[in-house]
Nucleic acid binder design. Structure first.
Length: 802
DNA sequence: AGCACGCCGACT
DNA sequence: GTCGGCGTGCTC
């Protein structure tokens, strides 16, 4: 007998193990490890992944596997093993690990239906009417009509049966194509036989005398300017044939990427690329930290390294933060490698993502450029993995499996014996420390290409401005410079970091802040709907007209949004043309690109925006960058807040003066003395690194210590506290003296959606037993978790400590 | 996660 | 008596 070991699509502790199924005789040759299959599970049918095929099973009463969902395995041996590794590293379920490696389109969709059986004797009239003319209805319809009990009885009587179906989420896109059924000679002969008046038909035959491959019907029609009936005629005569053929949804259809050639490298670049090329050539794994200031030409290094990899007949993965995966970026890769490139990012529809992914799987492309999840691209012959802006926190997935793309990259780099290149102008402290220790190889590019000077930065103390009577959000210097650039017809970028300082509403008399009744967090004011919203549970409320505490009518809106800045700008500088870029103005597909194009073409003077304009903008006419308030994220309860502030300010400053014209940066802040602001002003990463390393050392944070965070949540406060207490003391008993276990303490957000949250933070250097201990905790509380009362989340190397 | 099974209180 | 509420335990 041939048995398949299957991981079923049920994300729960109890089902997080293989289930064995007999492979029916006619499928024995077909079923391979890595395939998705449909299996019976209890009364249902569900999707599963075959992880092994073996001759026997320990289990007595096996069921038969129903059918495969793939023709060839969708996960190769490497990815199957990578899934196991992910499960171990992030303490997630096996099924979640497999699913995260695949495009969402491949996740199964389940349907439940009611079907009349052949036995229609004595069928109650009500049942008849519910079914109507059909013999099958969706389960939901019976629920809606409230006749479930009725149905259940008939199921027992054998008149109705419950059907479980597993469906694909996305169909392969198919379009009508026309192909010739005759040889060219035959076609030519038939053309002669056609009546004289069949002008159009003859034209079509001419076309097919030239054409090699099948042609899309739609394209054929528009190209020849004919109607469908012409084709129909020829099809009826048997000359041509209509065929449904699979096509890719192409998000870049009708776009031409002009080809670019490798650029000559600067001395810095030459020095940096050598070790990478050597690693490619010698097929050995090495992790490089490419530390190059903004404008030092990191992308060209990526491009030329990839070129080398392609010459070796291998493939490349390039990870880019979602936010900078702009058309500009895509253009650079498509320009160099043309059709060899697949692009994976969140702007694509599920179908488009699936199609791009399939190009990788079918080996039709050799390079993938994408966000975090592209690290799982199913290449089998990887030659290089590049992570651009490696310090970006978006490389860490915040929901299960809580993996970091950098770690996955290094894992895959080891398996494939290929280099991993981490690039940044402001490396994460973790990576830089590793480079200093020699774990990674440091490659520095301290100079900008063409040796342009880094932009001059001025830091403005906004408290000073306030003291001198300037209550606006623009300092006098910034305003002066803006006016100057407007006059010179040069462009300005204004940056506002709204994140971390959302607009809240406060009473000016008593300080009352409107909070969410379900979560211990202030409500955010939404201008568009004129309502207050909770970002965590979705609760909504009206804006109070007077203070609920003291009845004062002095309600004030805090936190400056881009909209408010825009209004202000219009007031102060009525002639300036402003383009605003934030989530609201870029939500529509393609609007991001459109706005940038407008700005590039000079249709506006000022580009005002959030996070999303901090990266990748490279326009020659930008000579002034203003940061409206540098310290909005500095005071978050996050040990990385200084690092993030420094990175963001450096990043934004890099937008100015990238070409001939000299750039200037004005940073407004309420804490100019803070080292992350000050050193960002001097663009001095090395000193920032030193300073921040000291702080991390004193407080025992990464990179000196690893972190793991356990968050417990429950509806009852007492229960939450007592369970966290037990967990904490258990963990403590399993740790060495070197490790520190902080807790139990309330989470920074102590209540979300009426669930109390407590946590335990573990700081450690080397704890080989920790993983086992954490697993044990999840096992221990398994029942209480599955009953729904308790939630325990474990985050190994967390990025958000909330 | 679903789903069946089973045991108890509230009704026709 | 039976309908339907939810706790319990299993799924190859």
């Amino acid at each position: 007998m041939t048995i398949a070991s299957v991981i079923v699509d049920v994300p729960a502790k109890q089902t997080d193990r293989p289930f064995d199924y007999v492979i029916p005789a006619h499928l024995v040759e077909v079923i391979k490890p890595g395939m998705r299959v449909i299996v019976p599970f209890g009364p249902r049918k569900i999707q599963g992944f075959v992880i092994a095929v073996k001759p026997e099973s320990d289990f007595g009463k096996l069921k038969e596997l129903i059918e495969p969902m793939d023709i060839t395995p969708i996960l190769n041996q490497e990815l199957l093993a990578l899934g196991e590794w992910l499960t171990y590293e992030t303490l997630c379920y096996k099924i979640s690990a497999f699913q995260v490696m695949l495009p969402a389109a491949l996740k199964a969709k389940y349907e439940k239906k009611l079907k009349l059986t052949a036995d229609v004797t004595n069928l109650p009239a009500e049942i008849r009417t519910v079914f109507g003319a059909d013999d099958m209805i969706p389960w939901e319809e019976a629920v809606k009509l409230g006749c479930l009990n009725l149905m259940q009885r008939e199921v027992a009587n054998g008149k109705v049966e419950i059907i479980y179906e597993v469906k694909e989420r996305v169909r392969k896109k198919k379009l009508k194509h026309i192909i010739s059924r005759l040889t060219k000679q035959q076609l030519a002969a038939e053309k002669e036989n056609l009546p004289v008046q069949a002008v159009k038909q003859k034209e079509v035959i001419d076309f097919f005398l030239d054409a090699e491959a099948p042609v899309e019907l739609r394209k054929l029609l528009s190209e020849l300017g004919i109607s469908a009936s012409t084709i129909k005629g020829l099809v009826q005569k048997g000359f041509l044939e209509e065929k449904e053929m699979e096509v890719y949804r192409d998000p870049f259809e009708e776009r031409v990427f002009s080809h670019t050639e490798a650029l000559p490298l600067t001395e810095d670049q030459e020095k940096a690329i050598m070790p990478i090329l050597a690693s490619i050539r010698e097929h050995n794994h090495e992790t490089f930290l490419l530390y190059g200031v903004t404008g030092s030409g990191k992308t060209e290094i990526y491009l030329q390294s990839i070129q080398k990899v392609l010459q070796e007949g291998k493939e490349a993965i390039v990870l880019v933060p979602e936010i900078s995966l702009t058309p500009q970026m895509v253009k650079r890769f498509k320009g160099r490698f043309g059709n060899e490139v697949a692009v994976l990012h969140s702007g694509l529809s599920a179908g488009e993502k699936y199609d791009e992914w399939r190009k990788i799987q079918k080996k039709e492309v050799k390079v993938v450029v994408g966000a975090r999840s592209a690290i799982f691209a199913p290449f089998e012959n990887l030659g290089i993995i590049i992570i651009d802006e490696e310090h970006e926190t978006s490389y860490k997935q915040e929901d299960n499996p809580k993996y970091h793309a950098r770690n996955v990259a290094i894992k895959r780099g080891t398996t494939h014996q290929c280099p991993v290149v981490l690039g940044s102008a402001t490396p994460s402290l973790e990576s830089f420390a590793r480079a200093q220790k020699g774990v990674y190889t440091l490659l520095s590019m301290p100079n900008r290409m063409n040796n342009q000077a880094l932009p001059g930065v001025e830091i403005i103390d906004m408290r000073e401005e306030l003291r001198e009577g300037n209550r606006s959000m623009f300092s006098r210097l910034l305003l002066e410079k803006i006016e100057d650039r407007l006059e010179k017809k040069e462009q300005i970028v204004l940056f506002l970091n709204k994140r971390g300082h959302s607009s809240f509403v406060m009473c000016r008399d008593c300080g009352y802040v409107v909070n969410c009744p379900n979560c211990d967090i202030s409500l955010t004011y939404h201008r568009a709907s004129q309502r207050m919203k909770c970002h965590y549970c979705g609760y909504e409320a009206h804006v109070p007209k007077s203070c609920p505490e003291c009845n004062s009518e002095h309600i004030r809106y805090f936190g400056t949004g881009t909209q408010k800045v825009e209004e202000e700008l219009v007031k102060i500088l009525p002639h300036a043309k402003v383009i605003r870029m934030d989530v609201d103005t870029t939500s529509r597909k393609g609007s991001h690109e459109k706005l940038l194009d407008q700005f590039q073409e000079g249709h506006a003077d000022i580009l005002l925006g959030t996070q999303m304009i901090a990266k990748g903008l490279d326009f020659p006419n930008i000579t002034l960058v203003g940061v409206l308030s540098a310290d909005t994220m500095l005071h978050l309860p996050d040990f990385r807040s200084s690092e993030k502030t420094f990175q963001l300010l450096t990043q934004v400053s890099g937008r100015a003066g990238r070409h001939e014209k000299e750039g200037q940066v004005v940073i407004q802040t309420y804490t100019p003395e803070h080292y992350s602001v000050e050193l960002a002003g001097e663009q001095d990463f090395d000193r920032f690194y030193e300073k921040e390393m000291m702080v991390r050392k004193i407080h025992r944070y990464p990179p000196f210590y690893y972190l793991s965070l356990i968050t417990v949540s429950h509806e009852e406060l007492m229960k939450t506290v007592s369970i966290t207490e037990k967990i904490t003391s258990f963990i403590r008993s399993r740790l060495s003296n070197e490790a520190i276990c902080l807790g139990p303490v309330a989470s920074p957000i102590p209540r979300i959606n009426n669930r109390y949250r407590y946590q335990c933070l573990i700081k450690y250097k080397r704890e080989p037993e920790l993983n086992t201990a954490l697993k044990k905790i999840l096992d221990q509380y398994q029942q209480e978790i599955s009953l729904g009362g308790l939630q325990i989340s474990v985050d190994v190397n967390p990025f958000i400590l909330m």
